[in-house]
Design a binder for these strands. Structure first.
Lengths: 120, 120
DNA sequence: CAGCATCCCCTTAGATACTG
DNA sequence: CAGTATCTAAGGGGATGCTG
């Protein structure tokens, strides 16, 4: 519904309580301290093995990484590919829905680099 | 559509490991169940009184709203304007940094409406 | 390698009551 | 109206150890 009001300046009422529900659901999916970071790293390079993600996000614990990854998988953002080998080999990649987060992540990244108050 | 370009395909290297720090800081600022929702509502209409925000986000408690608002204020995303009157009158508006979140919010909103798996 | 299980702590967030 | 104060329950998240 980004097209409803077009711009988001000082319009009277572009969209009061319309798709707030959707936004909330989307935020719910992306909620969590590591989710966006995981998606970010998968956007940077895909697919990634579990241990690669672990290394990419040093401060995350295995437990959290597994947990958030499962949540993202359950929400259809990430796909888990298991290679039936020994030793175990698992790769993660984004679903089309996950890849569609690119503009959002890019915009966020842009904000972080340019407008974010903590970018100093 | 997203204002960022709409290229969702296979980007080789949007941003390797460069400003991950910045992204993390930005995510930290926006972290929390209500922050993005608050910013969203302020983007829709500005300024807003405390009670307006309360009504716009029914499931938030006063405590949480105050808390998240303060955090956003401390992070330079939101500005708090107090009118020295009786009864008390406080308005909230976005700082330029906060307003700069528009593209990100729009992209997120777009994702929520179109690509988010839970948008069905 | 990729995970699961367990223990435990500390923060978060909800409800409620009170105030300038 | 716009908060503050307090109490409490829930669970997020860390550390460690074990397994297929």
């Amino acid at each position: 519904m980004a097209s409803t009001g077009g711009k988001v300046s000082a319009q009277p009422e572009p969209a009061p309580g319309c798709s707030i529900e959707q936004v909330e659901r989307a935020l719910g999916i992306l909620e969590g301290r590591w989710k966006l970071l995981i998606v970010h790293h998968l956007l940077v390079r895909q697919p990634r093995r579990f241990s690669e993600l672990e290394r990419a996000i040093p401060r995350v614990t295995q437990k959290m990484l597994v947990q958030q990854l499962r949540a993202l998988e359950a929400d259809g953002v990430v796909r888990r590919i298991v290679f039936p080998e020994v030793p175990p080999h698992v790769e993660y990649e984004l679903t089309p829905a996950g890849a569609a987060l690119t503009p959002a992540l890019t915009a966020l990244h842009d904000w972080a680099a340019n407008a974010c108050p903590a970018s100093a």
